[in-house]
């Protein structure tokens, strides 16, 4: 962990913190893969990803439980203080967020199967665009987590407004389309759910950014927080 330059006197304690960090990074990686796979499935109208996605989902859940256990153990045995305390607490929060992201990605992947039954929709490129932004958000915040860099985290946090705007626009257009063509209602609802999930994932990414910001600076990320530049 790079929050402090010096190593712990108790080597095992330092190792446990490092392992927690590594586990969190692995979980982040896995969730990112899950999300990418889900969006690809939607875009390519691929109905055959379900098994693969379910497999990964199990892994993510197991990792979440493992991180919880590690955090509990650190509190009970090591009583972490200051940076170590903030790191441990943040790890717990981030892992919960990641687990939720994993769940949402799984839901998106399941929608791909349903959507593949309908003809391709003209709004799909909008969905693809939204997905790309959300993946980018998640990727950036996870990168920031591994480098303990606040700056990209603040950027991610601010960029959430764009995600919300795009989501709102998508919903508006979808509703108009569905009003014009009633055959679009069924696939449209699926699309709306996918968009909603992507928007939620964006929120989780900002949560992770907030946790990371607190972990590094001990201050909450608020509207008036200046850009870290």
């Amino acid at each position: 962990m790079a929050l402090s330059k010096t190593a712990h006197i108790v080597t095992a304690y330092g190792e446990e913190l490092d392992q927690l960090n590594d586990e969190l990074a692995r979980m982040g990686g896995l969730v990112e893969t899950q999300l990418t796979a889900a969006i690809n499935a939607i875009v390519r109208r691929d109905a055959g990803v379900a098994g693969e996605v379910r497999q990964r989902e199990k892994q993510v859940n197991a990792m979440h439980v493992d991180i919880e256990k590690r955090v509990l153990r650190l509190f009970a045995l090591r009583q972490p203080l200051a940076t170590d305390l903030r790191m441990t607490i943040s790890a717990l929060k981030i892992s919960t967020d990641l687990e939720r992201v994993g769940d949402l990605a799984k839901n998106i992947a399941y929608r791909a199967k349903d959507l593949s039954a309908y003809p391709a929709l003209g709004l799909m490129d909008r969905v693809e665009r939204l997905g790309a932004i959300v993946i980018q958000q998640l990727h950036e915040v996870l990168d920031a987590l591994s480098s303990l860099d606040v700056e990209p985290a603040i950027r991610v946090w601010r960029a959430d407004d764009e995600v919300d705007e795009r989501y709102n626009a998508l919903v508006r257009e979808m509703l108009i389309s569905m009003g014009e063509d009633s055959s679009l209602v069924e696939p449209g609802v699926h699309i709306l759910f996918v968009a909603k999930n992507l928007e939620r994932i964006g929120d989780h990414a900002t949560n992770i950014a907030e946790a990371l910001h607190f972990m590094v600076t001990a201050a909450p990320l608020e509207a008036d927080t200046p850009p870290a530049s």
Partner: peptide, 19 residues
């Protein structure tokens, strides 16, 4: 002091990293 010490020496001391 115990959540967010400002000085790195305090930080290192209370997290058990003294050098």
């Amino acid at each position: 002091i115990f959540t967010n010490p400002r000085d790195p020496r305090t930080q290192d001391y209370i997290t058990g990293r003294f050098g």
